[in-house]
Every structure is written in structure tokens, then in C-alpha cells.
Write a protein that binds this DNA or RNA. Structure first.
Lengths: 319, 319
DNA sequence: CTATTTAATGAATATTTGCCCATGCACTAA
DNA sequence: TTAGTGCATGGGCAAATATTCATTAAATAG
């Protein structure tokens, strides 16, 4: 049933995809699918469930929901954004990433459909990871995908929120990981690290990116930097005292979206934030906790595009 | 709730889209949606149904099989087939038989899994041989496997593309070989051959077959009939002049799938092609060279099922 | 203002789906 | 070979979904 390499695993996915097609596209009931595929009804159900679990089934809504359009327009005006995408919130789970992840994946797909080779720069974090998971497989080796920062801790261990590798894999493009820790121990080590030829090349690519997609981190007790163990509590307190409101690829900024001149930022190993004037720099972020951080980033023109959900958009407008 | 002009219709679609989003993307049940949107459960169901009916919900399958299913559906419609199976092509080897052979074997297996004794009729050729090679061993002596044609040349030597014997061996079923050459020397000899009791019995079985699986031969310089030495070049040219486009079990047909009334067909010793109206007659065929032959066979209802690959399916649809 | 038609609603019900669990089969290690 | 370990299978049942139908509300014409 499968021409290439035949493995039990690929056969299982083939069947799952076939069942899902019959279910979602052709509109069969699971009973009919079972008969057509010669399995029991329960097995058919399992196949469909597998296809959903393996993310083979992608659902999208082809309708601009009025309320979301209104919010997007209002935010575009408020922050002078180049692009703004609002997805509906689930009232019960307003911080759900799935919706924005799909929207971001569609945006990304639009860029990567181009026949010209594009450079895509990606940050890290849960939102980015969720976005890449929504991304369909395609074959577009003309593009280059580059990481804006490392995901290693000082001891060399890595967080799992890496988006570059899996996106590159799905796109079939070459990728440029960022082979540095998130933070250097001091400015001197940083200079040394940045001197490496490969690193210089990667950073240069980041500066030329046609499309940059980043997450936004808040700076309170639930801050990704703190939760993931990059920054100890004492330093978090110092940063808060210095007015830290949010961070993008670890660069910490204040409530106006201006990078803070502090010891912490002097150790940040990430690529410099692109000037969001001439290139598209889009943030994906959701949740009340990130409110101040999103507001500041937009105000300070650290990003010129925003993908968020209804609930967050309403809070932003109320600010 | 809606930007731009407010009409009852657009509000209805907005709600439908929102409900569909909560259902398909956020994974709510219709009960939850009803509570969240403040409507009854039935209304929520209707909203979701509306969104589907209005085609606001787009589902796609991120798996090679998805494309295959689309093609199968299109071909089923185009040729009014009873069944159509498309396997993914290996882009590097678009004429590889392995994929379709596995698919055909699975189809065959489905029939042979039945506890009732079935009659299976088989043609010859590389595709059939490959199919049988993919067939697992089983013990189902209740079935009968019968050959639709011989594989002897006039001198009594045999081509190796015999499927009946090895399938019967793998299934553990009784088999009925076709003890005649492919071609008689003339109509008189043919009548004589067909008079044999065993042959009459075999042909009768072919007519009752529950499932008939055949290959399709093209009629150009790469024709199996020519390559395997059944037909000399001069006769091939005559047939081509008479409009021969393809052959199934050596019966030669024109570009509309109508058997050609000619000296050659008068010598063909194979069992008559089953009327593909009431019985399942499935062809396995792959490759650009067979395009016209496949198209004609389907057009002329010589077969009512097709197993091929993605590349061939695309070419057929483009015709 | 009323009669008539149309569309929307929710109750009742039929169908479909999701899940748990006992069973059995295949594979592994001793 | 045998006991053990997983893992797929299908029965059974509860949950969720779709459909039908009678009723009511709204819209429109007279």
C-alpha cells in the first residue's frame, strides 16, 4: 500500500490517513470505513483517532469572524502594526495555544510557498513549538531557516522548545541552529563566543531574514526565563527593579519596549533583534500574564506584526 | 459581533464559524459550545453543521495518502468505477510495481478472507506476478483460483508470468490452470481447443468469478505481447493500423475500449472478458506507456476497478 | 389587526462515536 | 518448550451527535 520503504509504522499511518480521509473528506461514518477497509468499527475509530493524534488532520476555518476582524483592525491602528491576526478564544481555555499556532502556521506557510528562497528566523518557546507542530509537510529546499538564539543552558543541556529543527525538517529546507547557550557567563565570554565564524554567519542571516517569528516572554514569577531555569530568583528581582516588563529571544525590555541597559542584557547571546522597520517581525503570544509584555513590545516597535487571540486582544485594547 | 455591514446572514455565519472553531480547533463538545455561546445544544449542533455545509471548515490531510484519496475519487467519478485504489508514487521510480502490487494483494486478501468459497480469476503479466509475490500465506482451501488465459507459446514453452499457480499455493486453494496456448494458429484450431471438456469447465468458472484481477498491456513497441514474443512485428503493425490501443488477457481493444473485430482476436484462446457490470473486474497497471490502454479499458467498461499509482492517476486525469 | 407563511426552537429519538475491558495472539526470554 | 509480556482486537455500554417533528415566534400580505 506504500511504495517507498515499507515499515509497520508507515503502514499504520497510511491506514490512519486513509481512514481519516474517508471520515473527514468523504464524510463516511466509521462503520462504513470499517466495512470498506475490512476492519472492525472500533479499529476504524482508532485509526481516525490516530490520524488526529499524529496531527495528520489539519482543520482550518475559512471565515473572517467579524469580532476578530474588528479587534485586529483596532490593534493594527493602536500600535501601527503591519499585520495583525486575531483568532477566536475558547472562553473556557483563553490561553490555549492551538488557535494562534494554526494562524501562525498559515502565515508562515504563505511565506514559504514562495518559489524564491526566503530566510526565516525563529525564536524559541512554547508558542513557536506549537506553531511548528501545526505546520504541514512540504518540499521547498530553496528556503533557509535560522535560529535567533540557542536553547542550551549554561551546562549544555537543552530545553525542548526548539522550533528551527522541526520546521526545517517539515519544509525540507537547510537550517542554521544557534550553537550557543542562551546566556554567556559574562561579556568577555560573549565576545569570544560571537567571534566564531559559524556564529557570525548565523547572526548575519538573522539580520537578513525575510520573516522573523518570535514569542514574547513576561517577566513576573511565571516568566519562561525563570520557569525554565535560565535566570535565578535573585536576578529576576533585580531585573524587575530595573523595570523589566518582557523579553523577546531573551532580550529584556521595559514597559515602553526599550531594551534595558543592564548586566543581564550584556550576557544575552541571542542574535540582535532585527530592526522591525523594514522586515517583517511577528510575535505570537497569548494570555493575560503576557499583557504588559505584549503591549510594551508593540509600543517599542520591537515587532511589527502580532498574532494573538480574542481575549488577549480585548485586554490589550482596554489598556 | 461583526465588522462591516451587519446583516442577519453574516451574523449567522459568524456564529457558525465560531462554533465550528470551538468544535474542530479547540475540541469542545457541542454541549460545551452551547453553554459558552449561550444557546441550546441543538442550536450549537446546527451552527456546526451550517459551517460545514457552507464550506467554512476546510479539512486537509497532511499525508501522502491524502493526495491519493483525492485522485482515486476523481478517477472513480471520471470512469464510473466501482473501486479505485491509488498508491503513492516513488518520485524516483514512477513505474515501480511494488506499491500497486501490495495494494492489489491487500484487495485480494480482503476477498479471500471470506469464509465462503470464492472464485478468483487471474490474468497474467508482470503486475499480476508482482501482486502474487506480495501475497501472504494463508489456509483457505474453500476458494478456487482460475486462470483467464494460458501462458504457453505456440511451441509449448511457457512465460514465467504465471500468477495462478503461486497464488493457489499461497492460499492453499485448488487452482484451475488454463491449458492452452495464448494464441491458436487459426479459428478452426481454436474451436477444437475450446471443445475440450476441461477447457469448457475452466472458461465457465471464469464467467462466474467473484473477483477478476487483470493486467493491462499497451500496444506500442514496448507491448508485452510483442516483447514476450507472442506477436511478430508485422502483426503488431497491422494491429496498430486497426486502431489497437491496449489488451487485456490478449483481447485487443481500440481507444474506446471496444474489442477489435480482427484476425488476431479471432485466434485469442483466452476466456472471454467477464461483463464488468455485475462482477468485480479490477485492473492493476502503472506507467506512462500504458496510459492510453488504461484510459480506453476504463472508458469501455472492460474493467470496473483500477489499482494504479499517483503519477499514472495524474496523467489519466489530465487526459 | 388578523391570517398565512416561514423560520427557528427544543423535546424526543435514532444514530454514531468514544472508551473500557476481557480475550487471545504474537513475540521474548529462560 | 513454556511462562511471561505486551499489544491488537472486538463486545458492550455510555456519551455525544444527528435527525425528526410538533410547537412557537417572527415576518409579511391582505
Amino acid at each position: 500500500m506504500n511504495s517507498g520503504r515499507f515499515t509497520p509504522e508507515s503502514a499504520r499511518l497510511d491506514d490512519a490517513a486513509r481512514a481519516a480521509w474517508l471520515y473527514y473528506v468523504a464524510g463516511n461514518t466509521q462503520d462504513e470505513i470499517a466495512r470498506k477497509m475490512g476492519v472492525s468499527r472500533q479499529s476504524a475509530q482508532r485509526l481516525v483517532a490516530t490520524a488526529v493524534a499524529e496531527r495528520l488532520v489539519k482543520v482550518r476555518l475559512d471565515h473572517p469572524i467579524g469580532r476578530c476582524m474588528d479587534l485586529a483592525e483596532a490593534l493594527t491602528k493602536k500600535y501601527a502594526l503591519q499585520s495583525c491576526e486575531i483568532v477566536p478564544s475558547d472562553p473556557g481555555a483563553p490561553d490555549l495555544l492551538t488557535g494562534v499556532a494554526i494562524a501562525a502556521a498559515i502565515e508562515l506557510e504563505r511565506v514559504l510557498k514562495s518559489p524564491e528562497g526566503k530566510i526565516i528566523a525563529l525564536g524559541t518557546g512554547r508558542a513557536l513549538k506549537a506553531t511548528v507542530e501545526q505546520f504541514p509537510r512540504m518540499t521547498s529546499p530553496q528556503h533557509r531557516i535560522v535560529s535567533l538564539l540557542g536553547n542550551m543552558m549554561a551546562d549544555g543541556s537543552a530545553t525542548p522548545y526548539n522550533a528551527t529543527i522541526s520546521l526545517a525538517e517539515r519544509v525540507g529546507a537547510t537550517h542554521y541552529p544557534y550553537p550557543l547557550p542562551v546566556l554567556a557567563s559574562d561579556a568577555a565570554e560573549l565576545e569570544n563566543l560571537h567571534g566564531q565564524r559559524a556564529v557570525r554567519n548565523t547572526i548575519a542571516l538573522c539580520g537578513q531574514a525575510d520573516f522573523t517569528l518570535v514569542g514574547i516572554g513576561q517577566m513576573d514569577h511565571s516568566a519562561p526565563l525563570f520557569v525554565d531555569g535560565f535566570v535565578p530568583e535573585t536576578e529576576m528581582r533585580e531585573l524587575a527593579a530595573a523595570g523589566a516588563t518582557g523579553e523577546i529571544t531573551s532580550w529584556v525590555y521595559d514597559s515602553h519596549g526599550v531594551l534595558i541597559d543592564c548586566a543581564f542584557n550584556a550576557r544575552v547571546a541571542s542574535a540582535p533583534l532585527p530592526k522591525a522597520a523594514d522586515r517583517r517581525v511577528v510575535a505570537v503570544a497569548v494570555g493575560a500574564a503576557k499583557l504588559a509584555a505584549i503591549d510594551a513590545a508593540c509600543q517599542g516597535r520591537l515587532v511589527n506584526g502580532l498574532i494573538t487571540n480574542e481575549a488577549t486582544a480585548e485586554l490589550l485594547l482596554a489598556k
